[in-house]
Design a protein around this nucleic acid. Sequence first.
RNA 1: GGAGAGGUGGCAGAGUGGUCGAAUGCGCCGGAUUCGAAAUCCGGUUUACGGUUAUGCCGUAACGUGGGUUCGAAUCCCACCCUCUCCGCCA
Length: 425
Amino acid sequence: MLDPALLRGHLADTARRLAARGYTLDTAAFEAIEAERKRVQTETQELQNLRNTRSKAIGQAKAKGEDTAALMAEVAGIGDRLKANEQALADVQERLAALSLGIPNLPHESVPVGGDEHANTEQHRWGTPRTFDFTVKDHVELGAHKGWLDGDAGAKLSGARFTVLRGELARLHRALAQFMLDLHTQEHGYLECNVPLIVNSDAMHGTGQLPKFEEDLFATQVGETKRYLIPTAEVSLTNIVRDDIVEADALPLRMAAHSLCFRAEAGSHGRDTRGMIRQHQFEKVELVSIAKPSESFDEHERMTRCAEVVLEKLGLPYRRMLLCTGDMGFTATKTYDLEVWLPSQGTYREISSCSNCVDFQARRMQARWRNPDTGKPELVHTLNGSGVAVGRALIAVMENYQNADGSISVPEALRRYMGGAERIA
RNA sequence: GGAGAGGUGGCAGAGUGGUCGAAUGCGCCGGAUUCGAAAUCCGGUUUACGGUUAUGCCGUAACGUGGGUUCGAAUCCCACCCUCUCCGCCA
């Protein structure tokens, strides 16, 4: 959620900055509803004030044993008027909230302006894609060996975009997650967390999945209670500080979790249907930082580096992209994507996304810290990044480390998690 | 799933219809005392929203959540959520 003061005081400028990311803010509608809100709220508060003072007078009169009939008559009509006003206020505030909750974050000034991914700018590359002296196979062909990667079984059990992993490949997948979590918790200073995969509606509103993107989520309903499967552990980790006031010396609060993620992938029909690039269920090691506002952009660089180190230790060539205004997610003010080299596609594919959301999620969550300079609770900044997507990392390892005979070499960093194995075959 | 107890400020804990945003204690901040400290004493110490002739002032709201009764609700009524204890079940 944007700062309401920004919308009230700098509406035209805010609309212009939102337009850079392809969002059209209906300023006339906003101004109309905001004017109504102000009028109704002022009226309501005046009525409440009147009722309070009159009621207090009645109490004092009764205490003195005086007759209260005149006072009672005076206050008679207030109740109904007040009730009507309070209802009107609730209505207008609900409409205002619906509008506000649907407005995306403002892009940071360092973000290039552009409509889609073609305007993203490459920041740097690491590693050199390997040259093969045989015809490379993609991960689906490699995975067909020994039933390692079985899309048909996944479809039988659940439908499209589900996969069964078996044998040494399943073990390699697990090794990747273990390796990443160990790296971030033991070397990068993140606190290991194990979090709920099913969360309530408040949590989904806090990090911005709701109310706008419900169709992207899997939901559960038990009795009257509707809950949602997390599309990323960002939801669980970030909402830990919802409604909290964090002490200054606890910041930055760095948390990491290995979790399952569930995405409905509505609107992705036909994209990446082959293999396990885009699944309804996948695993990810997620990094979340809760930071002081003055430190969040430094923290963003640091977090992105933590993700890059994963790929470097795995020996996977990648590049860092700075997303343009039109390609960023709803909550982000600035996002770096890491793209890993996939030999079968001859291109780089997204494997991590690291975003600074500044106070956008914090305002929705009422997540604050106590600023020692002011003594007041102020909104924190929240950041999240994949460090990294486990399923896509598996694909990258399979394809980049494949051998002519269809076996797959195990990257040095993973061998201790694979009982020392140098290759799987 | 059954039975019971309970949810009040940073914490503990009073308050069962009226001047209660809420006693008291602890903690915290400032001051006095002191060579300094402890102890003691004095004062201060929630948050959100709105207004404003803004480093202040005024108003409104908030005692788990949502409704209801009432001129007036932390207090009475209803529903729900959560926590704890015991029993059952279960990984």
